[in-house]
Design a protein around this nucleic acid. Sequence first.
DNA 1: TTACAACTTGAAGTCGGCTTTAAGTCAAGG
DNA 2: CCTTGACTTAAAGCCGACTTCAAGTTGTAA
Lengths: 129, 129
Amino acid sequence: MDIAEVSRLSGLAPSALRYYEKIGLIQPNGRKGLRRQYAKKIINKLNLISLARMAGLSLNEIMTMFNESDELSIDRYLLAQKASEIDVQIKRLQAIRDSLNHVASCPQSDHLQCPSFQQLMKSVKPCSP
Amino acid sequence: MDIAEVSRLSGLAPSALRYYEKIGLIQPNGRKGLRRQYAKKIINKLNLISLARMAGLSLNEIMTMFNESDELSIDRYLLAQKASEIDVQIKRLQAIRDSLNHVASCPQSDHLQCPSFQQLMKSVKPCSP
DNA sequence: TTACAACTTGAAGTCGGCTTTAAGTCAAGG
DNA sequence: CCTTGACTTAAAGCCGACTTCAAGTTGTAA
């Protein structure tokens, strides 16, 4: 497969694929002339990368997930830890959503003083953006 | 209150407060000499700003939430819409978390092919990072 | 009065994750 | 064989939200 095909199948721009290669995250199988040729299994790897990106992992973190043979050599503990971080994030988002709904429905301009709002803010504050 | 006090109470760096002022998001009450002096209610505004930031709103979006008197002049529809966007985000995060847990617990290297994983990936794909 | 910590400014720098640009190369169809 | 569109490169640019820097000013305690 050439880069356009990989781009189409993975949903990642060719420039992103070249970027991933530059930082050592992926490797083409070889070249035909100058052109990169990829094995099909790269798609799986890219899907996994996308998943990890969406989970909030940085590309550097993601690099530690694969060994030289492109197999997952995951620190499963790290992954489980990430999963629970996401759980925390979910709870924060729920609190934020509730706060937004409160602000949206409370007609007072001083709802900032409203006990329930204050409570929500507290549950949200601990982590910064 | 001077800027250090506001920083302490709001959890925002002085440089961030100056930045917010530069883009027109906040205003000090006045100056003592060169130094900014803030009214206490700025803390409420800053808390609200932090909340909105955590909810994923940009500073530009946040600016539209206040009128000239620093009162919330919210497009409540916009807020409710944001709240439901967050709901979507929560559902995505739940799917991502489930995917991570799957990857972390599935010992096969080809779990990428595993139907349940494929299913999770699908539910996660629609939105890009 | 003097020292000095804490403020002030505008401009430039940082971060990650790409995208864009400009200039060049080349595989493959006609 | 020639064209051409898809690739190639290195380097620069972009985004938002700040932070850092260098140089200057000033409120306040001693």
